[in-house]
Design a protein around this nucleic acid. Structure first.
Lengths: 291, 291
DNA sequence: TCAATTCTGAAAATATAATTTCAAAAATAA
DNA sequence: TTATTTTTGAAATTATATTTTCAGAATTGA
């Protein structure tokens, strides 16, 4: 039988519409009405919604060239997925001169997808709340990272330090952390970075900080660090890429966006401060000689 | 229990995410990935697609406040119907719940554009050459960053150090750099990071290194650091974003891609090394107590 | 009109889905 | 480490969905 297997359900219905019986046409119209959502329920639901019996539904599915109702439904799922998912051609972006299989392009695809997924899941209210908290000059801010995320913590610290006072970077070596804890007071904020291969020390620090009334902001991955349950705000980013390691690209994106947010928020108070600091760097740069 | 009945599945997941278990989070991420289509199949399909068991799916549905899986699915159907019938096809990237003008979305647009432009301009041959050079175990590698790019240098160093021996991170304080120069020999590689507000010290170090027969790989911005003229390979990334600072997101992308390249190239020699190191970290993690 | 044919859905039969139970595995606490 | 708790999925159970059967209803052609 010459039924083309690649047709959509809607196309098949239209093609065969003349050969459908009265009850089948009724069903077909119901399916096309809110296409493809109506077809997604159980055969019972579909039959009820269109006022026909379940055998009619099953029969029509076969008539349209499917093995049965479940097969027709699977096709509807596939179609829906194609409709819903991004219409943006995946890699018109990327490096054209390199083949699709080149690590650059595979990496780019993965990072781009990570970005998309992360942004889809982020709660802007939560983001705003984080920015507000970090813009509050009355609160001291403590920043800590793990073995791999240390660079994120460092980057965050470097920028925050320019914008405001009262920012501390907790040293990587956890032996010294007791001293940092002494300086954490009620109302302070701890910004922690913890991704897969979650570090026990970070969790411990978060616990101790929490017990001292410190608010925890956590940058973690899609699965969530164990410290997440202690966090008031946690910003999760997708980190999987075709590599033996995880990608911090999206995490860095969030960090930079938060920094930009804080900068906007505190601009009035901090613009002169920033200018002075920048000038200082420019000057010292001039006079240093190392060799 | 006070669960609001009018929340979407996605909202419920986000709300309860921190209280979900490992397998449940895995499932939650799978559902959010192609939301809401992934959740539309049978409980069996959903469980298979997300790599968890059917009881886990049923349990999570209850945990999210539904009577069971079918109830959760009904909610997904309702949501889908609402989505489909709304004619406004939002650009599905980025955070839909935030307005276009929100810093998150403006930042995302900028970063995405930076990524596109950067990849368009990168020469895959040059990229490959950089990977080859860094995979050559006979060459010592020296890594240096500036005030802002230090975190990039640090990140690069951390990963390279796991994969191979002979990698040195040049300390941030340029007073001490003379010592590092003493250890640079002909054939060595200097990986330098230098973006806008180019740092004079980096240029000086590059000059000195060059005079000792060291090959320079430079990560810089679209305009190119003054050190670019000394570099054998330079990887330029776009860094402009709506912020007082520049964005290192794309630079980090290139760094991670290079690392992934080196990893692939040296896999045979380094896999055991990597494994051992990872295990070491896992162990020390267990026994350290800081407080 | 009536007989032949096709269509349809109630009900039975079958297949699959969803939930529950429970023992093993993993995580956590002591 | 060892004990305790929590989490997890295989297997059993239960509930639903899907298909099949078949008798009656609707349609068609004379």
């Amino acid at each position: 039988m010459g039924t083309n297997q690649n047709l959509t359900v809607a196309e098949r219905i239209k093609q065969k519409f003349d050969h459908l019986t009265r009850a089948e046409r009724q069903l077909a119209n119901a399916i096309l009405e809110d296409y493809p959502v109506t077809g997604l329920g159980s055969i019972t639901t579909v039959s009820e919604n269109s006022g026909v019996s379940t055998p009619t539904v099953a029969r029509m599915a076969k008539k349209l060239g499917f093995g049965g109702f479940p097969q027709m439904q699977a096709q509807l799922h596939t179609e829906l997925k194609a409709t819903i998912s991004s219409p943006i051609a995946k890699h018109d972006l990327w490096s054209e001169s390199a083949p699709d299989t080149h690590i650059l392009n595979r990496f780019a695809d993965a990072v781009s997808e990570n970005m998309r997924q992360t942004l889809k899941q982020i709660d802007p209210e939560e983001f705003n709340a984080v920015v507000d908290l970090l813009s509050d000059l009355k609160r001291e801010i403590h920043v800590v990272g793990g073995r791999i995320t240390r660079s994120m913590a460092d980057n965050f610290f470097t920028h925050m330090q320019v914008m405001r006072s009262g920012v501390t970077l907790v040293a990587p070596n956890s032996n010294t952390w007791a001293h940092y804890v002494l300086n954490m007071n009620k109302g302070d904020v701890l910004v922690a970075f913890d991704i897969r291969r979650y570090e026990h020390d970070i969790l411990r620090l978060a616990e101790v900080a929490k017990s001292r009334g410190v608010t925890l902001i956590l940058f973690t991955d899609q699965w969530g660090s164990p410290a997440a349950k202690l966090a008031t705000y946690s910003l999760n980013s997708r980190i999987e890429v075709p590599s033996a390691w995880d990608s911090l690209v999206v995490t860095l994106f969030l960090v930079e966006a938060v920094i930009a947010g804080v900068q906007t928020q505190t601009w009035n108070e901090t613009k002169s401060r920033m200018k002075t600091l920048e000038e200082l760097f420019d000057q010292t740069k001039m006079f240093k000689k190392f060799i």
